[in-house]
Design a protein around this nucleic acid. Sequence first.
DNA 1: TCAAGTCACTTTAACGTTAAAGTAAATCTG
DNA 2: CAGATTTACTTTAACGTTAAAGTGACTTGA
Lengths: 340, 340
Amino acid sequence: MPPTTTMKRIAGELGVSITTVSKVLNNREDIGHATRARVLAKVAELGYQPNAVARSLTLRRTHTLGVVIPDLMHSFFVEIVAGLEATASARGYGLLLCSSNEDPGKERQELDMLRQRQVDGVVLGSANAAGNTDLLQQLTSIGVGIVMIDRDDHPDVRCDRVVTDDEEVGRLATAHLIDQGRRAIAHITGPSIVHAKRRADGYRAALKAKGVKLRADWMVRGGFKEADGYRAMKKLLAMKPRVDAVFAANDPAAIGAMKAIWEARLRVPEDIAIVGAGDIALGDLLRVPLSTVSWSREDQGRSAAELILDRIGEDAARPRGPQRVVIPPHLVARRSSGGR
Amino acid sequence: MPPTTTMKRIAGELGVSITTVSKVLNNREDIGHATRARVLAKVAELGYQPNAVARSLTLRRTHTLGVVIPDLMHSFFVEIVAGLEATASARGYGLLLCSSNEDPGKERQELDMLRQRQVDGVVLGSANAAGNTDLLQQLTSIGVGIVMIDRDDHPDVRCDRVVTDDEEVGRLATAHLIDQGRRAIAHITGPSIVHAKRRADGYRAALKAKGVKLRADWMVRGGFKEADGYRAMKKLLAMKPRVDAVFAANDPAAIGAMKAIWEARLRVPEDIAIVGAGDIALGDLLRVPLSTVSWSREDQGRSAAELILDRIGEDAARPRGPQRVVIPPHLVARRSSGGR
DNA sequence: TCAAGTCACTTTAACGTTAAAGTAAATCTG
DNA sequence: CAGATTTACTTTAACGTTAAAGTGACTTGA
């Protein structure tokens, strides 16, 4: 192994002090023309690269963000990470990626690891992490910036948040179905998290706004998985009169619902129109392309990175209160709602 | 901001030397019962956490792997990262994630960044990176381990590799179509990289092995994107007699081919059977579920992590030559091939 | 009983960098 | 032309940790 090139080596070969080399590399003013040139030449000759670890130690800055997401396999989070990566990388920050697998224990462990590694900030995409409030507070207290993605829990943690307008998601989906002339519109709800509840609120609000009847038994308990949507739809199909449209809390649930409809030998959208939410990849390639409510995950990731970097970066303005960025959703009308 | 708890602080409060604290935390033998207990108590009381940056500086080990992939949006690479993450995290290693966007320039920049950050190893998932051989060699020369995923270029770089058996991929797909009774089997090729060429080799080999005629004009130039498959299929549909089966170099191309078939008012698989490769997410939810050849990307990621950690980890055996792990593919028969 | 260990520590130095304070020599100022 | 200022550096200390060498006190062995 060749000896690593350090400032010491450069200084030694030139007969100047290490500090002089450091100053040249940091573009300090108090270095003479000639010396600067000599140092730069040597740096090029030896292919010197600064050691970021040593730098981090003195500067107390790692230029690294920790990213904790619940599930790498879920395209949703990955798209957010893509947005994060683009912004962070452009600003010279690295991303330390962790997966919590929805497990608060693992999440805790990962957060601890990130703290030990002295990351400058943490992006938290976990869907559930009750119980780690203490750690999060501790992190902010030692100056680590935190951004939460699509979460409204941990009210006591002073941090930025980037969220979707979930009520608007429900409103857009439902209003679209009404606009398509449907009047018996059901909702397959998600799990009991704020997230999903707000989508249900939007569903109710849209019906009310347009004066369409809301029947309590048309809101059936579902979930965020395909099987949940399937089961819920089975229940809806058993009711009379039959509903003519369904807004499912997310796309996998909507796909499950479609499967149940086909099994009952009915047609989508002729007999029952379907709208989901989340715009999963390939939704447009399904047997019946799925209408959905979408929002830019890349923007969400980008915003998260910007918030945190503006808070902790060198050019950080004076301290400011917790920010909240809302990413607006929009309707993607495909065939499942008869929208196209 | 509360003062950070360091070994210095602990040593100070107890009136012992910093080294003593360090020894306790590293479970060294030469510390007395009583002292050990006192230190441990203080550590717990102050919630001391070691500073990984300082540790890295002295130990010359960051316990971090760099991961460079071409595209975060592509589920293929993400699944590999998931495999990597699980293994690395379990062994106490962090993952520094970079996206090269298929751009050799950006890749170079990312590799440089990883070097400055003193990562212990690099996992290279980039699809193309001609021109960076020098950097890679330099990295290995300073002791950084490298694993390449699904690549056979850069023959001069001494590193481990984890690849699929692409010829087998082609063989499995083609043999399956033959077994389904098809005899006019076309192949939509991928781009001109070894990867895709080997799949074509497998196609030819399978036909030959089973004595099925191979017509040169049944191999049409495609690509790895949906549009490529669509275009290629258009050409195939213009030929007489019509083919009754197609093996597309990957799933997106297969999906494009199906679209072309439907546009021609033909049926899949009744008129033309289709098999892809790669097993993209949701392939089973398509209008016609897509038959494909799959292999475990998670295993691929896991293997990569194991190879590199066994090479560079503290428990690393004596130096060994470059390893090569082959992940075996298997057929996933769905409806598009009439296989189910 | 005294040299040779052993035990339980401490001291010193180092990892590669930057910040702050120090210092000669050259230059300006009135 | 003496004192103040500027220029172009160097010295010292620090970031938080670990490795290697050192050091007394106490134990062992013949």
